[in-house]
Nucleic acid binder design. Structure first.
Length: 845
RNA sequence: GCGGGCGUGAUGGAAUGGUAGACAUAUCGGACUUAAAAUCCGAAGGCCUUAGUGCCGUGUGGGUUCGAGUCCCACCGCCCGCACCA
């Protein structure tokens, strides 16, 4: 009898799959297509367990679809541009390109042993000129279609590194690398017009039935639709009226002052004239635009001296303040403040001694607002001081609608819809990204590059010894000819946000070698992605940007209409976690230890006891990482795959434990041993064959159901149970052989190598990977005789054994005749008997 | 503050409104062995001077139902997302 030696088996079958070429996605083949995609990795250099879990899930789907006769597209690529490569160049020298391609080679080598059913012929990296050149072509088409534009925008600026920082790169108001205080700076940047699609992107969320509700909700909140009243305050001087937007127009009679953003045009005018205002505005601009910076900032205001007239009463004058908490890029950059019914406004008015006017009262309480604002509820009745009828009872909603109607009829305001979603700034002052293909010409201005000059390649001869963008100080790269007038011009040195790279890669996979961004015929066949799998951390940005790009690519003729929503189904998987092992150094600072250095709660080296901190996401800094490569060499890829799928539901986190990994390995060894014994046994057919056959069909049914509904843990539980059944069965060899072959097939999406080995051992034809997926026989799923529990008043009291199709009346008779029911009835007639066929009997006494 | 999710044995978790705890881990017992490992077999939610197919039991309290872990309401706890958004 042979032993289970995973590494040998795995190498052997990977070779067999390769030479059979079964994972090449073939457009020409018969059968329905299926496109399964996992979010592609950033080439950091090492794969981690999170990758293993993500790609294994996708692989289970891909392999099961292959076995059910689909043409499967299951590609892999690299999200290869980005800051870490430049940081590595700055920290350890070398070139970002070499670092990135070296990492890709390393990671590919670590990934291949997992035995994923990937069509490697479609592999690309976003830093390949063939890829980013097509991205530049796409950019030019979008520019032509009016989907890209340039404008000034306020950004986080790191004065030491001399670059724009994303909000995520600002920590406590300081640049994450330089530690310098971040400034807000206005720069001319390129933007995608994603905000034009706010309504469309919001409405279409309703069509994404196979997306997690949570993700749809997060996108809905991010797009942030609101309905309100927009109107202008006339000034008492001759200046331009101030337009404000409010979602609570019903509080208009509680107005205390009008506030404008420090970036509002009026503030800018005043800034030029009045040095005090200039100082104040400068003060406001300090600090980043991040949530944290804003959260901790004190509310600051400055009275401009300007007065405006209340729209309902021209003799009522309100002061105009500049306030640091008002954002220029939401609404109109100006508000009217109602302190009685908004906490933020109340705090501000108390600080600066502005009046507080109540316009809403609770039904049973008319105490004036003191320190806590009373926010009128939208759906409950409150008493309201209204503009036309004095005091009335109304819900907030009624009050809002009444006010909008009133303003529109009176002609001084209109109901408008606003969105929180802002245009997507794509300019980055970095080297390692896709160059924006435009040039700046003194006589022609901003001119798009000619398509025949694409790709605009990144120069290789760059240095990272100074901060800032190396493209800016490259001696010759910037210099070029104006594509329009032929005169001397300068290339744009900003590169694209790396989110652009990942916003269309799924489309490129359908024709990765085309000399246009996509090949429409291929896209027509393969799109949409039938199943997309990735982390919840991409719930908003990546997925929203991709949805926008799918629309932009249709407008520019690069995707067919059907791909308006590129991902038919989305699954967000949980993380892989591990306990953290910690000791303390002489200064009581924590020292973390790798799991491989700890045994029985003690350090292997010194025997010192470690403190065990509850499981958390695997991270290098806490050292609670397990290297997939070492797991694969110790137990094999199938064990790693089996383990990451078992125990926890896929959307939840799974805790990696050494014991669990060993148990997975033991189980696979056991299956190997059982199959091996069967292949060598010779037991004649007998009465247990039928029972085993029924169990087999139940297993087919349950495992298939689990795989098709992302219940991998449930499938695996059923596979354990079926293995136990098979192991204990006294059935004849022929029946056991069939059952074992089916077991191999059912396991094959999870443990593809072992399954091939078992399949071969048991005399299966060809490769199990391409053998038709077994079908459950419905008739075999219900036993001839079933056990029915008998409840009395909803409590289980007895059970009866009945034929599966026994008539309801007969079942009732049988149930009533049981001793427990007779005892409970004590001669009385039951009030009611509920018989749920095949399920339960409930007797109400 | 707003929005969403989750609370089940020692642990991970299972359960279209129908036998709660499948399956696995850890634990305990037995077989095999000189012994251990491996393997195989088995026990196992809690309670009890009545060991009974007895009572209790899915965060807490109510409700709907013949029947609730599952549906509804309130509360407690934990987790996640968003947020000076007017």
């Amino acid at each position: 009898m042979s032993r289970y030696s995973a590494n040998e088996i795995e190498a052997k079958w990977q070779k067999a799959w390769d030479s059979a070429g079964i994972f090449y996605a073939n457009h020409k083949a018969d059968g329905p297509k299926y496109y399964v995609l996992e979010m592609f990795p950033y080439p950091s250099g090492r794969i981690h367990m999170g990758h293993v879990r993500n790609y294994t899930m996708g692989d289970v789907i891909a392999r099961q679809k292959l076995a059910t006769g689909h043409n499967v597209l299951h590609p892999m690529g690299w999200d290869a541009f980005g800051m870490p490569a430049e940081n590595a160049a700055m920290a350890i020298g070398g070139h970002p390109k070499d670092w990135t391609y070296g990492n890709i080679a390393d990671m590919r080598a670590q990934m291949k042993p997992l035995g994923l059913s990937i069509d490697w012929s479609r592999e690309f990296a976003t830093c390949d000129p063939e890829y980013y050149g097509q991205q530049q072509a796409l950019f030019l088409d979008m520019l032509e279609a009016g989907l890209v534009y340039r404008k000034n925008a306020v950004v986080n600026w790191d004065p030491v590194d001399m670059t724009v920082l994303a909000n995520e790169q600002v920590e406590n108001g300081r640049g994450w690398r330089s530690g310098a205080l971040v400034e807000r700076r206005e720069l001319t940047q390129w933007f995608f017009k994603i905000s034009d699609y706010s309504e469309e992107l919001l409405d279409a969320l309703d069509t994404l039935d196979n997306w997690p509700a949570k993700v749809r909700l997060m996108q809905e909140n991010w797009i942030g639709k609101s309905r309100g009243l927009q109107f202008s305050f006339e000034r008492t001087d001759e200046g331009e009226p101030i337009t404000v937007y409010t979602t609570r127009p019903d509080t208009l009679l509680g107005a205390s002052f009008v506030g404008i953003s420090p970036d509002h045009p009026i503030a800018k005018q005043l800034e030029a004239k009045d040095p005090k205002i200039a100082d104040f505005v400068a003060e406001c601009r300090k600090g980043g635009t991040t949530e944290e910076a804003i959260e901790t900032a004190e509310k600051l205001g400055y009275d401009t001296g300007i007065k405006v007239k209340h729209p309902l009463d021209p003799s009522w004058e309100l002061p105009v303040w500049i306030a640091n908490f008002i954002l220029m890029d939401y609404g109109t950059g100006a508000i009217f403040a109602c302190p009685a019914h908004d906490q933020r406004d109340l705090d501000f008015c108390r600080k600066y001694g502005l009046p507080v006017i109540d316009t809403f009262f609770a039904l049973d309480d008319d105490t004036p607002v003191d320190k806590i604002a009373f926010v009128p509820p939208k759906t409950e009745k409150v008493r309201w001081v209204n503009h036309f009828a004095g005091l009335t009872e109304a819900t907030g909603e009624e009050a809002i609608n009444a006010t909008v109607d009133f303003a529109e009829k009176a002609g001084w305001g209109e109901g408008v819809t606003k969105y929180r979603l802002r245009d997507w700034g794509l300019s980055r002052q970095r080297y390692w990204g896709c160059p924006i293909p435009v040039v700046h010409c003194d006589s022609c201005g901003v001119v798009p590059e000619k398509k025949e000059n694409l790709p605009i390649r990144l120069p290789d001869d760059v240095t990272f010894d100074k901060p800032g963008n190396p493209l800016d100080r490259h001696p010759t790269w910037r210099d070029c000819e104006c594509p329009s007038c032929g005169g001397p011009a300068k290339r744009e040195t900003d590169t694209m946000d790396t989110f652009v790279d990942s916003s269309w890669y799924f489309a490129r996979f359908t024709a990765p070698h085309a000399n246009t961004p996509t090949d429409l015929a291929e896209a027509e066949y393969w799109m949409n992605v039938d199943q997309y799998i990735g982390g919840i951390e991409h719930a908003i940005l990546h997925l929203l940007y991709s949805r926008f790009f799918a629309r932009a690519m249709q407008i520019t003729g690069h995707l067919p209409k059907k791909a308006i929503e590129p991902f038919d189904a989305l699954f967000t998987q949980g993380m892989v976690t591990h306990e953290i092992y910690q000791t303390r150094d002489e200064k009581d600072r924590p020292v973390y230890h790798l799991p491989e250095d700890v045994e029985d709660g003690k350090l292997k080296t010194t025997g010192e006891a470690v403190e065990i901190i509850p499981s958390a996401k695997m991270s290098k800094s806490k050292k609670n990482v397990v290297d997939p490569v070492s797991i694969i060499s110790a137990f094999g890829a199938d064990t790693a795959r089996w383990f990451v799928l078992s125990d926890s539901p896929p959307e939840r986190d799974v805790e990696w434990t050494a014991a669990g990994a060993e148990a997975a390995f033991k189980h696979l060894s056991r299956v190997h041993r059982i199959a091996s014994e069967i292949s060598e046994s010779n037991v004649p057919a007998n009465s247990d064959d039928e029972t085993l056959l029924r169990e087999m069909h139940k297993a087919i049914h349950d495992v298939t159901g689990g795989v098709e509904s992302f219940g991998f843990n449930a499938s695996i539980a059923k596979l354990y149970a079926f293995t136990n059944t098979l192991s204990k069965s006294k059935a004849g060899t022929a029946a056991k052989r069939e059952a074992a072959k089916t077991l191999a097939q059912l396991m094959s999406p999870m443990t593809p190598h072992l399954s091939e080995e078992l399949w071969q051992m048991l005399g299966g034809e060809g490769l199990v990977a391409t053998a038709p997926w077994p079908k459950a026989d419905e008739a075999m799923l219900i036993d001839d005789t079933i056990t029915l529990p008998i409840q009395i008043n909803g409590k289980r009291r007895a059970e009866i054994s009945v034929a599966k199709d026994l008539d309801k009346v007969e079942v009732e008779k049988l149930a009533l005749s049981t001793e427990a029911v007779q005892r409970a009835l004590d001669g009385a007639v039951p009030k009611k008997v509920i018989v749920v066929p095949g399920r339960i009997v409930n007797v109400v006494v």
